[in-house]
Design a binder for these strands. Structure first.
Length: 796
DNA sequence: TCCCAGATGATTTTT
DNA sequence: TCATCTGGGA
């Protein structure tokens, strides 16, 4: 993926001459519905494409790009097309290529906001006091830097944590506020030191020749504003601008776009105000709502024909989103005939919900219930918060249902990968102080706080980088003993690796291996006894393998800074588990939406922090969730849930009241607890609410109280009090007590609540080594294990 | 300098 | 509940 290859982006080496191109037919136009076609053919001037979920937005967008080229309006390198994710950019590139065949070389200016800004900023870095080889810090680097500043300023980092400052600075950067432009109303932020610290931080970044993610946009906006000649050059170059997911743009991105588009106004923004779910990250729905004011005379096209979901699913989604104020307004429709209603089911508690979903998935995979059978790949569980995933993971491990968690800790964010990358960074540029700090004592070199302070002082006194500071310190014999010797080795190593990078004789892959080897990092993990160590070594191997796709280490580092994903498609069909946020843009034949309880979803915190605005964003999230489903959408809630170890009971989500009754089927779980007492009670209490024509006033909880005052509900409430002491979970998967532990011997089959089944491979005091069938080898305390026979006998 | 025990505090996360 | 951080003791 050499997207950052070279500056041919402005060269005119394009196969299509404008004349010839204009002659070519555009066969793909026939493939579009009228609305799509209108959006594609309105090439000049501002266009707002309001594209509801599943209405073929990417199709229209790519057709438009192709159309711009074949009508001779623009050459591929004169089109600026921005997305938010690398995935979206990749998909668009692929699809444009497919439309046009091989004739058109890749579009250099199709990419994420960040990737495009990096490219631009490297050409103009000096205008904001940077060198063109600046490094890009990720959030981890950013926070460590901020922490240093906070400590240096003698601020109590307990009361004023770095992450809070990071959030604040991000917030300001999203609004395109440089330290000088932060309004006075923000002066009290961060104990009245916010703007001051922001200013220090920006200066420190310049010293380090570094930028954070927010800077990429902010610096470009600054450059465009302060250097009209530069701006003009790009206004002329980018003849047409396309923006995907416009509802997610923040102020900085908005300004950036407006600056570039203001001369010719050939800008086409695609988005859906109903799917704006990143307000908390600075996205401004206002941008899309205001489009027609920003660009008077804009063509507004609504894509409303949905090609994804059944009418019931669409109706349910519409019913929910209708409750939001201030929408641009769209009504999705489909040519499909009926299909399943949205299914709703209540459960006693979160564990039971997970158990039911597991069983339902198994039976849907087999094709029971009068439905077609679904592959596990076709099913997804979408949760509001990642902690909800655990219950499902536990359950699926137990029953051996293959699953994949999407959007967990990402590959390039893992500790060992970041450590290794820090070594690579030092090899490329030994002046990278942040990288040096990260690995100076990793692996342990006997260089603790004291020693590191000495290095810092030596560096500062000499106006040198940390590596040079360390060299000076060693020369002056300012450090003794084991630490000094180790530091010597490290410093020499860095110099040697750097020479090797510059000489370019060895392949970068070989070099990477040498670096990890000579630094002692590989050995460090080999000697580590913790259960994660093998996995981490495995990751390091994978990292080296990932280098193969690049020409050199620099190219790789650039790639990783912006593209943090690493999609390793593993074999076998699996159910997907992910957050609702992570599911945006995806679709599945069958979707499960668990945890629809007030407080969890909509999230209490959202409502507390952002009031009605927060609630509406939660509601859009519900809309996004429902519209992910093609054929079957199953919503569920539980009366009781363990939150941070405490049992809490909750009411079904207010969004459930908003589901239109005609499109919902209330399910009753069969035969649970000998007759479905709890679950049936739940369903019964939920259904009148559904049946009642509920234009339910959100703030009027009184009418709900009546419904949930039903006998079934009250019984549930009463039982919830006893639950923690007795009831299912404990008795089902009985925990073996201390005496029983000693009875394990090697070769025993055991069961663990989280890791599933395994075999005992060794004993060490009260710890037991177990090789789990699915989860690998772990060392754990015996009392969390159950003999397999015993667990296996337990009825689920 | 390192290691472990207790305190702490906890959404969502495109780049 | 449980992962992460920190401060005190070895």
């Amino acid at each position: 993926m050499s997207e950052f290859s070279d500056e041919d982006a402005f060269e005119a080496a394009v196969p299509l001459s404008r004349q010839a191109a204009a002659m070519r037919p555009s066969p793909w136009l026939d493939d579009l519905n009228p609305a799509q076609r209108q959006a594609v053919e309105a090439l000049d001037g501002p266009v707002l494409m309001l594209a509801g979920a599943g209405t073929g937005k990417t199709k229209a967008l790519t057709a438009r790009i192709a159309h711009l080229m074949t009508t001779g309006r623009a050459r591929p390198n004169e089109i600026l097309a921005v997305t938010f994710t690398n995935k979206a950019a990749r998909e668009m590139k692929d699809r444009v290529g497919r439309l046009l065949g091989q004739t058109v070389e890749g579009m250099p200016w199709l990419g994420t906001f960040h990737a495009i800004c990096v490219k631009l900023l490297r050409r103009h870095a000096e205008l904001v006091g940077l060198k063109s080889n600046f490094t890009i810090l990720d959030t981890d680097d950013q926070q460590r830097l901020l922490k240093q500043l906070i400590v240096a300023e003698n601020i109590d980092e307990k009361r004023w944590p770095p992450r809070m400052l990071a959030g604040l600075i991000d917030h300001w950067k999203n609004r395109a506020w440089t330290p000088q432009k932060v309004p006075a109303s923000e002066a009290s932020a961060f104990n009245h030191r916010g703007t001051e610290l922001y200013d220090y931080y920006q200066r420190r970044l310049k010293e380090l020749n570094a930028v954070d993610f927010g800077d990429l946009l902010l610096h470009m906006v600054t450059i465009f504003q302060d250097h009209p000649d530069v701006l003009e050059q790009y206004q002329r170059w980018f003849r047409y601008i396309l923006v995907d997911e416009y509802q997610d743009t923040n102020v900085a991105q908005y300004l950036w776009l407006r600056l570039l588009a203001q001369s010719h106004k050939n800008i086409c923004c695609v988005g859906d105000d109903d799917q704006s779910i990143y307000g908390w990250r600075g996205a401004e729905v206002g941008n899309i709502l205001r489009f027609e004011k920003d660009f008077p005379g804009a063509t507004v096209v609504r894509l409303e024909q949905n090609y994804r979901s059944t009418p019931h699913i669409l109706a349910a989604a519409s019913g929910v989103i209708d409750a939001n104020q201030g929408r641009l307004g769209k009504t999705l429709w489909t040519a499909e005939e009926q299909g399943e209603k949205v299914r709703l089911i209540g459960h006693w508690d979160g564990d039971e919900e997970a158990r039911w979903v597991g069983e339902e998935i198994e039976s849907m995979a087999k094709g029971t219930r009068g439905m077609r059978s679904f592959s596990l790949d076709d099913m997804a569980i979408l949760v509001r918060a990642s902690h909800q995933m655990r219950a499902f993971e536990d359950r699926f491990l137990t029953i051996g249902l293959p699953y994949r968690v999407i959007g967990g800790p990402r590959f390039y964010e893992r500790m060992e990968i970041r450590d290794a990358m820090a070594y690579f960074r030092l090899a490329v540029s030994p002046d990278d102080d942040l990288a040096f700090e990260r690995i100076v004592n990793t692996p342990k070199r006997g260089l603790g706080d004291k020693a590191q302070q000495k290095i810092q002082i030596a560096a500062r006194e000499n106006g040198a980088s940390l590596v040079d500071g360390a060299r000076i310190l060693l020369q002056d014999k300012g450090l003794g003993g084991k630490g000094a010797a180790e530091l010597r080795v490290l410093v020499d190593g860095i110099a040697r690796w750097h020479d090797a990078v510059r000489a370019g004789e060895r392949s970068h892959i070989e070099l990477a291996e040498v670096i990890l080897d000579e630094s002692g990092y590989t050995t460090f993990w080999q000697n580590e006894k913790s259960p994660e160590a093998p996995g981490r070594l495995e990751n390091l191997k994978e990292l080296v393998k990932a280098l193969e796709g690049f020409e050199n280490l620099q190219g790789f580092l650039e790639h990783v800074a912006l593209i943090m994903d690493n999609e390793s498609e593993s074999e076998g069909a699996k159910v997907s588990i992910m957050t609702l946020h992570g599911a945006k843009g995806l679709e599945f034949p069958a979707v499960f939406l668990p945890g629809w309880e007030d407080g969890l979803f909509p999230s209490q915190r959202s409502m507390d922090e952002s009031g009605l605005k927060g609630l509406e964003e939660e509601r859009r999230l519900a809309y996004v969730g429902i519209t992910r489903a093609e054929e079957v959408c199953t919503i569920s809630f539980a009366a009781n849930r363990r939150v941070y170890g405490q049992w809490q009971s909750a009411l079904p989500s207010r969004f459930i009241d908003e589901l239109p009754a005609d499109h919902v089927e209330v399910l009753t779980p069969p035969g649970l607890y000998g007759g479905g007492y709890g679950a049936a009670g739940m369903a019964a209490s939920a259904s009148p609410q559904i049946m009642a024509e509920s234009q339910s006033d959100l703030h009027d909880r009184a009418s709900r109280a009546d419904v949930y005052n039903s006998p079934g509900w009250r019984r549930l409430q009463e039982r919830s009090q006893q639950r923690p002491m007795s009831q299912p979970r404990e008795s089902r998967n009985m925990v073996v007590d201390a005496e029983a532990v000693s009875s394990f011997t090697e070769g025993d089959r055991v069961f663990h609540q989280k890791f599933g089944y395994g075999t005992v491979t060794g004993l060490e005091g009260d710890k037991v080594d177990v090789s789990f069938d699915k989860a690998g080898s772990k060392k754990l305390v015996g009392r969390f294990l159950v003999e397999a026979a015993q667990a296996g006998d337990v009825p689920f």
